[in-house]
């Protein structure tokens, strides 16, 4: 395979049989390097097949967003309909609430959830007592390992209007026990703050790692100059973690349309659907749950989300690079 291609391209480039060794050398070196490493390509073969099959084949299949897919005709055989599926989504009464819900939930999560791990890391970094520090770390990381299903199950139990912790507390104070899980106004707060509860410790790890790489000499010099702890945090620690924070911020802004939709889906009930229907849950319902499955329509919405997300990431990354010199690429 490699040999054939090599021969073909060298013939294509040079019709004359007289090849000077000087200009032949780089070409054959190139093929020599490929040939010499053939076993590495054999190792890579399986992962590449997997990548094509499970990641790139779906991208090819996403073209049904522009067709009226029917299983009888298959992907290539279904008729083209242009952007009809997209226009249908834009005109749909679901369009506005789904977009608004997604954005509100994402930005609320981002704004509330982004600074807290940083705060936790800065604070933990000040602690000198080893035992205290490692216990706080171990306890705050733990919720990260609890599954989404269990977290939502815990929310239902903890906030249960009759047997939940909040109900018991309210009863003890002679108050009306709240039914938060059934209250659409509480949905966003519960979603966001339970997410923070679960992920803040784990989110702090990366900042702690960066803080541990800051040169101690900086702190020593600052102490000699009479800087307080707070001043050292402000002028040494925070500038130290800023590049990392920037990169993470760019990445999460690029993902605002994704939301943690597995959790959203589990928290949905007929009561809160007005605020809890996001793009991803809608895509799932249209494509795989509704009585008339509409693959093309669902794919179109998913594709729209994917493209907008990608453009957003590129834009935010560009802005971050221009403004702060920190970017993902």
């Amino acid at each position: 395979m490699a040999d054939q291609a090599g021969a073909a391209s060298s013939i294509g480039r040079r019709p004359s049989a007289a090849l000077s060794t000087a200009d032949r050398a780089p070409q054959s070196k190139f093929w020599l390097r490929i040939r010499r490493n053939w076993q590495l390509y054999v190792l890579l073969a399986l992962p590449l097949i997997w990548l094509l099959l499970f990641r790139y084949a779906p991208m090819y299949g996403a073209q049904i967003a522009f067709r009226q897919y029917s299983p009888a005709f298959g992907i290539e055989g279904s008729p083209w309909v242009g952007t009809a599926n997209f226009e249908r989504f834009f005109r749909s009464p679901k369009f506005e609430p789904v977009i608004v819900n997604t954005l509100v939930l994402s930005f609320y999560s981002l704004i509330a959830g982004f600074p807290i791990p940083i705060l936790l890391a800065l604070s933990l970094n000040q602690v000198r007592k080893r035992l205290f520090r490692s216990s706080v770390q171990m306890i705050t990381y733990a919720p990260h390992f609890i599954s989404t299903v269990v977290i939502v199950g815990m929310l239902f139990q903890f906030l249960h209007p009759r047997v939940g912790f909040t109900a018991v507390l309210a009863n003890a104070l002679d108050l009306q026990a709240p039914n938060w899980m059934g209250d659409p106004n509480a949905f966003r707060h519960i979603f966001v703050w339970s997410g923070i509860w679960q992920e803040m410790g784990f989110g702090a790890i990366i900042y702690l790692a960066v803080l541990s790489t800051i040169d101690p000499a900086l702190h020593e010099a600052a102490v000699v100059d009479g800087a307080t702890r707070l001043q050292r945090i402000r002028h040494i620690d925070i500038p130290g973690i800023l590049p990392t924070a920037m990169v993470l911020l760019v990445l999460s802004t690029g993902r605002v349309l994704e939301v943690a939709f597995e959790k959203v889906y589990l928290m949905q009930s007929p009561l809160n659907l007005g605020v809890a229907e996001v793009i991803n849950t809608y895509v799932y319902k249209v494509g795989l749950l509704s009585p008339i499955l509409d693959f093309s329509y669902s794919t179109a919405i998913g594709l729209l989300k994917g493209i907008v997300g990608l453009l957003l990431l590129i834009a935010v990354n560009y802005a971050a690079r221009r403004l702060t010199d920190n970017s993902v690429w």
Binding site: Y60, I75, V283, L288, G302, L303, I307, G309, L310
Partner: peptide
């Protein structure tokens, strides 16, 4: 890059389901 790109963009739920 072919691997990293799949982090940024995917075919979506339904096309993956069809595969």
């Amino acid at each position: 890059i072919a691997f990293i790109f799949t982090m940024l963009f995917s075919g979506g739920l339904i096309p993956t389901y069809m595969v």
